[in-house]
Amino acid sequence: MNEPVPDFPRIGLLGFGTMGAGIAQVFAASGRSVLVLETGSERLESGFAAVSAFLEEGIARGKTTADEKSAVLGRIAGTTSVAELGCVDAVLEAVTEDPGTKQALLARVAAVVTEHTPILSNTSALSVTELAAALPNPERVAGLHFFNPAPLMRTVEVVRALQTEQALIDRLVALVGTLAGKNAAVVKDRPGFLVNALLMPYLNDVVQAYDEELATAADIDLAIELGLGHKIGPLRMLDMIGLDVHLHATTAAYTATLDPAYAPPPLLRQLVAAGRLGDKTGHGFHNRCHSREDD
């Protein structure tokens, strides 16, 4: 029997950072070939190293095999040249969350792919409609929003820009259906889409209550983990997301809506100003150098 050819057999991925690495792995694991664009060979190497390390941990936990690991890595190739993206079936950008960077890059990519090649964005906080408006044939533009870590989180938001054609939405829902364990949620292009629109006010509220000394960070997280069965409590989640990333996203949502639920609480700004960004700096609400009990 012939394996059915998957839709979008060749994915062009822009950016091999935190999300790019996870997304490359997810597509490669579905049997697709992935060509990743980065700014330099060190960035490519660090992306490959991240995928490799993630799969290595999967092997250690018995979730995957050495064969599967090399097959997945074998389907991912890197490049630093936009011109090489000409033959991909869809482009997904996961570069730095900066509108100027994304727009300039997408314009260059649009010039090398066919005029109907879908152009997708993994942005969390920018308007997909605005990204689409700057590109030729904006009906082939949509959001495809993965959550971090992409290989583990089941939900993928398919974001419908005002211009997106229904046929593309349908293809993307089907595409997500071919990714192991993933569920598509078709959402409007609102600030925060669906999940983050709900999550950000909650996280802001927790930060404010923590600042008002409702309880220690450890006890707030423990209460939510044990009381509601959440895998990780809200302050630990913020440390993982990165306080700067959350500040940026919630500020963008606040600017777009003027809804005070998105207004960043003062402590959040201060922690970012002090360089306490969470896990990536070893210090946020929890201090990674110490055990939970001492923070």
Binding site: F147, M153, R154, T155, N183, A185, L198, L199, H230, K231
Partner: peptide, 13 residues
Amino acid sequence: AIDAAVPGALGQP
């Protein structure tokens, strides 16, 4: 949609 998306993105039961 909300009941599927939220736990799948945030690790809620």
